[in-house]
Design a protein around this nucleic acid. Structure first.
Lengths: 168, 168
DNA sequence: TCCAAACCGTTGGATGTCCTAGTATATTGC
DNA sequence: GCAATATACTAGGACATCCAACGGTTTGGA
């Protein structure tokens, strides 16, 4: 990794915004930029932890989702909705997981338009092992304090609800 | 946009983690997943606001960075470090910005290895206009409460410092 | 009943990110 | 002074995401 910068570039950006007369939006700008950067850091950690399994985060998420489905199978559109990604992203992930023998596609029993994604035994095993590693290496060492974790869950939950992700 | 889900999928995932005996990492998992999703939502908003300008977020960030540099020019490696992205990503962005006439590459006066990226007059104008729209449509309507914005800045700042982004 | 509208998944294209490797230029050390 | 090492940028490839468009299936209103 590159050496740390001597200054926080996002704090600098916030100061730049303020000195240009955009003080009213400088703080949200900094918060949003920080979210972008944090996501990048976390994604890199996750991908690193999953690499030994030949998985990417997108594929892992799909495997994990399937492993929590009672039947171990879900329609593609359902997976797309729950993972909140474009249907074509699911198609892409399923293609690769299927090639790797971790899932199979099967026709929906009553709706000819729908395709079910089903976990194979291998897929289920790999999901378990990958989850164990992610828990140990990423989620268990996030670097967030316990209080901050709860703050994040609350703040981002409010945001996502407000953005129309879900109602409850 | 797709209709809201009846339940928060991340809260469901957290419950799944807890019911599988991973209670100790369920909350960080939920927080991290929420950051991923939030980033996706924000990025979509930003890209939507920038689309009329023919800009993407990656290209906008570079333009904005250059516009705050006193001379309006920066070495590529400096831009890469400040934006915290891979050098090849900067090469990619500069290629497209240069094609669009928004920046130009010029040789470094003393170091033959280094290339300077310089804002053109058009680039400077477009950066200004794009920033105004981003401020009005995205940062000014983030959906985060003022208190939450400050919490995010503090929490994510701590995280980024801990991850080695910067020291101060 | 039957055809138009809605829905589902896939294909093809554009963009961005990273990694690895390669070329050119600087710097260091003997 | 010259070879070895380090640094800067770029080329090519793998992946993921989105959008637009297409063909097959289902549904619903005339």
């Amino acid at each position: 990794m590159s050496p740390p910068l001597p200054r926080d570039p996002i704090a600098d950006a916030q100061r730049n915004w303020e000195s240009h007369g955009w003080s009213d939006v400088a703080a949200p700008m900094a918060a949003i930029t920080a979210i972008m950067r944090t996501q990048q850091i976390l994604l890199a950690r996750i991908e690193g932890a999953l690499k030994p399994f030949g998985l990417t985060f997108a594929r892992y998420e799909l495997l994990a989702l399937l492993s929590f489905a009672r039947s171990g199978a879900l329609p593609m559109n359902k997976a797309s909705a729950l993972l909140q990604v474009h249907p074509t992203s699911v198609t892409n992930a399923v293609d690769r997981l299927q090639t790797a023998g971790l899932v199979v596609r099967s026709p929906h029993p009553t709706d000819g338009r729908t395709t079910l994604i089903e976990l194979t035994a291998e897929g289920r095993t790999l999901a378990k092992r990958a989850t164990a590693v992610l828990n140990a290496e990423v989620f268990g060492q996030s670097g967030f304090g316990e209080n901050d974790v709860n703050q994040l869950i609350r703040i981002l939950g409010d945001f996502r609800r407000g953005a129309g992700d879900f109602t409850d």
